[in-house]
Amino acid sequence: MTRTVRLQDIANARTGDKGNRLNVALVCRNPADYAAVAAQLTAERVAGAFAARKPSRVVRYDLPKLAAFNFVLDDVLEGGVNASVGLDGHGKSLSFLVLDMTIEIAGDVPRRARETGTIAPGRSS
């Protein structure tokens, strides 16, 4: 049995910029989800989420020990922070394009966003 989850429900993401290149780090909150994300969140799918920005190249690097991925997208920042006339030349907000994507994961039990520590329990998916 599988269910569809938005990545925001199971993963963290953060963007960084260098010139006109963006990286999106995606970290599974529960390392058990790593395999499902690895199988489904391909570089091609991420390129699709950024299609309006016309990436010239998208590469996914896998970091299994960290239950994380690093997506590197070329030429998606309207020239970068010193050239873009848009409101987000750094691409700070663009992690949310990835977090809005969905994957299928096994099981039917909604999971809390954060499960340990002093952090308040998050919203169930």
Partner: peptide
């Protein structure tokens, strides 16, 4: 907060090829 997730997010910040 300092936990695995805050650290891993920053570990990969502005990284291209992690190797």
């Amino acid at each position: 907060v300092v936990d695995r997730l805050t650290v891993v997010e920053q570990l990969l910040y502005e990284i291209h090829d992690p190797s």
